[in-house]
């Protein structure tokens, strides 16, 4: 096969930000999330004409629910996969474990202060983010919270024979409101905040390709994860799978 990168500069330093597990988990959340949103919103706004049209596309009220549950199950499986992967990772590196996704991990607070000072124009020092910026933590823990609000209530509604052995009806009713309102929050949040951060913001448009090949180039790395870059340079290769440096990486996104 012809090299798609022929003619492109090949001397860029590229970091492997996400391994295949990270990318699979991202895919396993976002693809079913879109299906859940497409099949769930018509249920919440069932009087609207577009809701009726979407419902008939998915096969009426019953088809809508089938695909909603199908996609919901996929999200559950992805979460189990992620928790299992994280657990194995933690066991493997138990002697030298840092979890950069935790909000109190090193540098988060400093970077947050730097971020607002920078964005408000009070300082010209660009914030130095660790492996995960506060935005990414926000997104990640929002999914965690969402799994309890949406996933938990979803399971209770899916299996009423189980639910009504332990819970009264008012509880399930209220939990269902939480389900759909939290879902609306998630949809609006993803399509404004997350889409701004990885698609629409001028540095990344049309998108950041980390989700596809897991690779990020040096310039972006400096801007978006400056602290992590410093840490990697200090203890290179100590924890494989995290920010492993790939020299002479390819920069064409489709070839990853």
């Amino acid at each position: 096969m012809a090299d798609v990168n022929a003619g492109f500069p090949q001397n860029k330093t590229v970091y492997q930000r996400w391994n295949i597990h990270h990318r699979l988990v991202h895919f396993g959340i976002y693809a079913p999330f879109i299906v859940c949103a497409l099949t769930g919103l018509p249920i919440k706004f069932h009087h609207k004409a577009w809701a009726q049209a979407l419902a008939s596309f998915f096969g009426g009220g019953d088809g809508l629910l089938f695909w909603h549950l199908f996609a919901g199950t996929l999200i559950f499986l992805t979460c189990i996969y992620h928790l299992g992967y994280s657990l194995l990772y933690a066991v493997k590196y138990r002697h030298n474990l840092t979890i950069p996704m935790l909000p109190w991990s090193k540098g988060t607070w400093t970077a947050l202060k730097q971020y607002f000072a920078y964005q408000l124009g009070k300082s010209d020092e660009h914030p130095k983010f660790g492996r995960y910026q506060w935005k990414e933590m926000f997104d990640y823990w929002a999914v965690f919270w969402g799994m309890f609000m949406i996933g938990g209530s979803g399971l209770l509604m899916w299996f009423p024979e189980f639910t009504f052995q332990y819970f009264p009806k008012w509880f399930v009713d209220a939990y269902r409101w939480a389900h759909s309102d939290e879902a609306v929050l998630a949809v609006v949040f993803i399509f404004t905040w997350h889409f701004y951060n990885v698609h629409f913001q001028p540095d990344f448009f049309p998108m950041s390709w980390v989700w596809w090949d897991g690779k990020i180039d040096l310039e972006t790395m400096k801007l978006e994860h400056g602290l992590e870059l410093e840490m990697i340079s200090e203890q290179q290769q100590e924890m494989p799978g995290r920010g492993t440096i790939i020299s002479s990486g390819r920069n064409f996104p489709g070839s990853g």
Partner: peptide, 14 residues
């Protein structure tokens, strides 16, 4: 109610 939503969206089971 969810029963209503399913029925009014063309569901036959609810």
């Amino acid at each position: 109610d969810f029963h209503a939503k399913s029925v009014l969206l063309g569901g036959k089971e609810a």
